[in-house]
Computed example of a mutant assay.
Amino acid sequence: MENLNENTQQNVLIPSMLQIPRMLPLKQVVHYTGLSSTTIYDMLDTRSNRYDPSFPVQVKLSKGRVAWVEREIAEWLESKMAERVH
């Protein structure tokens, strides 16, 4: 019985240590950043005059489906706020 409890406790601990990143679809990135989808894709395009290498690159989840890591978008927004002149 003691081994069963040890295994159960280990299984309970594993999920709490696993950090699954929250993925944001383009619509939410548009909402959180206040940027249009066109601007976002221009910021990712190295040939665009709006290219921004600091903007997070999307993750391809499947054919025709991309999303951005929420933490990376939040960090990008925080870096923009930190650049403000007071």
Rank of each mutant, 00 (worst) to 15 (best):
E2R: 10
E2W: 05
N3Q: 14
N3I: 14
N3L: 15
N3M: 14
N3D: 12
L4M: 11
L4G: 12
L4D: 03
N5Y: 08
N5G: 00
E6V: 02
E6R: 14
E6N: 15
T8L: 14
T8K: 07
Q9I: 10
Q9Y: 12
V12Y: 10
V12D: 09
L13G: 15
L13H: 05
I14W: 15
P15V: 11
S16G: 00
S16F: 13
M17G: 10
M17L: 15
L18D: 05
Q19D: 09
Q19C: 07
Q19L: 11
I20E: 15
I20H: 13
P21W: 07
P21S: 05
R22S: 08
M23P: 05
M23K: 03
L24H: 02
L24S: 02
L24C: 07
L26G: 10
L26W: 02
K27G: 11
K27A: 15
K27H: 10
K27P: 03
Q28M: 09
Q28K: 13
V29F: 01
V30A: 02
V30P: 03
H31T: 13
H31E: 12
H31W: 01
Y32E: 12
Y32T: 14
T33V: 02
G34L: 01
L35T: 03
S36W: 06
S37H: 04
S37W: 06
T39F: 03
I40L: 01
I40C: 00
I40Q: 01
Y41P: 04
Y41D: 11
D42H: 14
D42F: 05
M43R: 15
M43E: 01
M43G: 00
L44R: 12
D45N: 15
D45L: 05
D45R: 11
T46N: 12
T46Q: 14
T46H: 13
R47W: 11
R47G: 05
R47L: 07
S48C: 11
S48R: 04
N49P: 15
N49L: 09
R50I: 01
R50D: 11
Y51V: 06
P53E: 04
P53Q: 00
P53D: 00
P53V: 06
P53T: 00
F55M: 08
F55N: 00
F55P: 00
P56M: 05
P56A: 04
P56G: 02
V57R: 15
V59W: 13
V59D: 05
V59E: 13
K60H: 10
L61F: 03
L61T: 08
L61D: 05
K63W: 07
G64S: 08
R65G: 05
V66C: 08
V66R: 06
A67C: 09
V69D: 07
E70W: 01
E70Q: 12
E70L: 01
E70C: 11
R71Y: 07
E72Q: 13
I73S: 02
I73Q: 02
A74E: 04
A74M: 11
W76M: 03
W76F: 11
W76P: 01
W76G: 02
E78F: 01
E78I: 00
E78V: 00
S79P: 04
K80T: 06
K80P: 05
M81E: 13
A82S: 09
E83D: 12
E83L: 10
E83Q: 10
R84H: 08
V85M: 07
H86I: 14
H86R: 06
